Simulated assay, not measured.
Amino acid sequence: MPAPCAGQRERSLSPTLELRAGNAILGLLPDVGGSIAFWRNSDMEFLHPVTDPHLVAQHGRAVAGYPLIPFSNRVAGDRFRFEGVDYHLAPSFAGENCAIHGNGWQRRWRIDMLSDSSATLVLEHVATRDLALQWPFNYRAQLRYDLREAGLSIGLLLENTDIRSQPVGMGFHPYFPRHDGLKLGFAASSVWTNGPDHAPALRVPAEGAWSFAHMRDAGESAIDNCYAGWSGSAFLRWPRREYALTVEAGAALRHLVLFTPPQHPYIGLEPVSNMNDGFNHPDIADNGVRVLAPGEKMEGHIRMTLSRC
């Protein structure tokens, strides 16, 4: 039987799952990588849905945030070496020869638990046939969303279900709306500049134009870089809408990827565990890559809290 075309796959996807807490509504797309479709209340959209044609596995659906499992950002050249073995991953970002953001965002997740304001999704990855090119090790991932009227919590869990150890990372990729004079602030010790292949090139202090230690306009410059030594808190403010959002991440997520594409109505602010291309930088002590033995687990937690300003 011939494989279905992209349009047929799109039509086979389930409708958006909605969670509610007071006036807050969270839309989820379990079939599209466990992604968030939207997060809003009666007068403000806190995450901005984006259709990215480079992420072919999202089937043209607009997503406002998605999990990064079992690693964040790029693996340069689609290759890495671990415990003496060379591994090759299938490219997953159209227009670039690279695997990006793991494979959790490419897969359908199963609904494990569901209530009015909470959902737990599960993905069982078994590295057979073509799936081994997405990721060559078996794992089980759990993704939990807890909606409150004044915030959203996201929990990530990754368990090594393989008989071998494996290197992993994790994180979450939300898109925040850039309108109404968005201001951004966070503290980090350093930032990685990028080479021609968008992989990290040089580590420099997070100072001057790289610094967001004092809140400033998120649209002043084009940035697509990974910060290290992140404090674990970031602050967004939409002054003309009188809303503020605090993003806090647990100790496992101490890198922060900032993406501010020019002329686009959103920014990406991604709490993650590993530096970009961390698998190919075992010499960096704080690369954030975690090696899980069989049966071992890794957890990450993100909390977003709303307030009026």
Results as ranks from 00 to 15, higher is better:
N97A: 12
S273R: 00
G60P: 09
F235K: 09
G7Q: 11
M215I: 15
H281S: 13
P136F: 06
F259K: 09
A201Y: 10
G171K: 02
F279H: 02
G155E: 04
P177D: 09
P196Q: 13
T260I: 04
P2Y: 12
G250P: 05
W39R: 03
V204S: 03
P30Y: 03
A293R: 11
A94Q: 10
I302L: 03
I223Y: 07
I267A: 06
E10T: 13
T193H: 05
P177Y: 01
L29T: 01
S14F: 14
R308F: 15
D224Y: 11
A90D: 11
P174Q: 07
E18I: 15
L26C: 00
F176N: 01
I25R: 12
I163N: 08
R203T: 06
F80D: 01
P15F: 05
F38S: 07
H59C: 10
P91F: 06
G7T: 14
L17D: 03
D52E: 15
D52R: 15
G84N: 10
R74V: 04
A234D: 06
L147M: 08
G181W: 02
A209N: 11
H301D: 09
A21D: 07
P282R: 05
A132P: 07
P200M: 02
W192C: 08
V50H: 01
A119M: 00
P196D: 13
V32G: 02
H59T: 14
L292I: 04
G300N: 00
T305N: 09
G195N: 14
P294W: 06
I223M: 12
S14C: 12
A141V: 03
D112A: 15
F46P: 05
E299Y: 09
F137Q: 03
G300Q: 02
W105S: 09
F137H: 03
A199T: 02
Y139H: 07
H125W: 11
N73G: 05
V291D: 07
G288I: 02
G7F: 15
N23E: 11
V168C: 05
L158C: 07
A99E: 03
F38N: 05
N280T: 01
G155D: 05
L202R: 13
L182P: 03
Q106E: 13
A206Y: 08
W39C: 04
F46L: 09
F137T: 02
Y87P: 02
I69T: 06
F235E: 13
N160L: 04
E10F: 15
R240Q: 15
P239E: 03
D130A: 15
A90G: 13
G219A: 13
A252P: 00
I284D: 10
G295C: 06
D78K: 10
D180L: 05
S118T: 15
V126N: 11
P2F: 15
R81E: 14
A76G: 14
S92C: 00
L236T: 07
D217V: 05
A187H: 15
L133W: 13
S189Y: 09
S72W: 03
G151W: 01
H214N: 06
W210F: 14
S118N: 07
M44V: 14
G232Y: 05
Q166I: 06
L253F: 11
D112I: 12
Q58M: 14
L269Y: 02
L114A: 08
D277R: 01
G185L: 07
